[in-house]
Design a protein around this nucleic acid. Structure first.
Lengths: 212, 212
DNA sequence: TCTAAAATATGACTATTAGTCATAATATAA
DNA sequence: TTATATTATGACTAATAGTCATATTTTAGA
């Protein structure tokens, strides 16, 4: 009975075709300037059909976010090297996140934009999946814990909190670059230099120490 | 000829009454769940009148953001103490920002939400005013510069960049708390503890040092 | 006090668009 | 070959931002 399987496959394919179409338009014109009719046209389907695969526009946006999160998750996990110290692994992961931000900017924005615009909304289960189980953040926590055990990372803050702090801090600077790139241009600040300098702050702190 | 002045005053008052009404509704029900008709009703005016004072819904939202920014600016400047070192002043300013986040959360969200949702939009002059002239960020840069001169703050990163990094980092953690408060509850992480721990990271960095 | 002009306010109307649903087309199974 | 199930359609509804012709109120000058 291969028919059911084929149908499931076809359904999944169609679903992905719709996401592809939405992605092309969203990435090109911005989330506010694309209508469901536009997407239907781009996907060569009728609007009603979109709603057979996604329960709302937001749900479609969420599907794009999930794609981005999967890419990021893969990038972050594939640089992990058990032979290295926790701190070294964290730095590698940081590099991977930087690469994601630079090379998959549209996905970065999809994640950031979705998070920000939905935060007023009522709870929906999916909202939490983003940060659960096999998420980048959870993996990040694990590696930090290893670093605390091997002594390469400061131990006075619980790994969970440290992960959230570092994650939010890095995302915060990326967000600034994404939102205020023009301002950085005006100030003649190079994005990459800014990111490198952030890493310095993360590693060595703010205070002026005699050492170093 | 006090008539013109009185009229200007009245115009300004009416404008503020509209912002008051919008604020009450936005803060209570969230930005997505309030219509211009709702605001007109709350302000005891007709919808058309709103458009005599604000050119769009977005413009009205922006007016709330400006209020928030003015409050923050005041809080940050009033803790400045010329007798103290740059680093001490920066820490004071950090405390002020924390207070703003905790006590004026609605304004914090107004700023954050506006920034995030408008970043796709085309340029409008106002977008830059947020971070110019007498803005909190510019003041922050000045104090950092003082700190670098008196030797209390590390000097290997230009003050402009340091300001942007620290600002974005702190905002990043606040944003996480605002967006993912529920997740922090689940992980049994206290918001205040998280913020205190962030300050530790900012001051002393991530690496495990023998000193301290 | 009266009146024309200016300033301010109104709300019915238009345009846009997310989401629905009765109907149609197509595929499956018996 | 036909009944049933699945998938697709697009005209329609509801909601709402923004407009504009009309009305009301205020001002200034005679």
């Amino acid at each position: 009975m291969g028919v059911l399987e084929r149908k499931a496959r076809e359904k999944e394919r169609r679903r992905n075709e719709i996401i592809d179409a939405a992605e092309r338009l969203f990435f090109k014109h911005g989330y506010d300037h694309v209508t469901m009719d536009d997407i239907a046209k781009e996907a060569e389907l009728s609007k009603g059909t979109l709603y057979l695969y996604f329960k709302s526009r937001e749900d479609l946006h969420y599907a794009i976010l999930i794609r981005g999160l999967e890419i990021l998750n893969r990038l972050i996990r594939e640089v992990y090297d058990a032979k290295k110290s926790g701190l070294e692994n964290i730095l590698q992961m940081g590099e991977a996140y930087i690469r994601f931000f630079r090379e998959k900017t549209d996905y970065f924005k999809a994640i950031m934009f979705f998070d920000a615009t939905r935060f007023e909304r009522v709870e929906n289960e999916s909202k939490f999946k983003i940060l659960q189980e096999d998420s980048p953040l959870v993996f990040f926590m694990e590696v930090l814990r290893q670093g605390q055990q091997d002594g390469s990372i400061k131990q006075d803050i619980p790994a969970e909190q440290l992960a959230i702090i570092l994650w939010s801090q890095v995302s915060g600077v990326f967000e600034f670059i994404a939102l205020r790139g023009k301002l950085l241009d005006m100030l003649q600040i190079d994005n990459i230099e800014l990111i490198r300098n952030q890493i310095k702050v993360l590693l060595y702190g703010l205070e002026n120490k005699q050492t170093d």
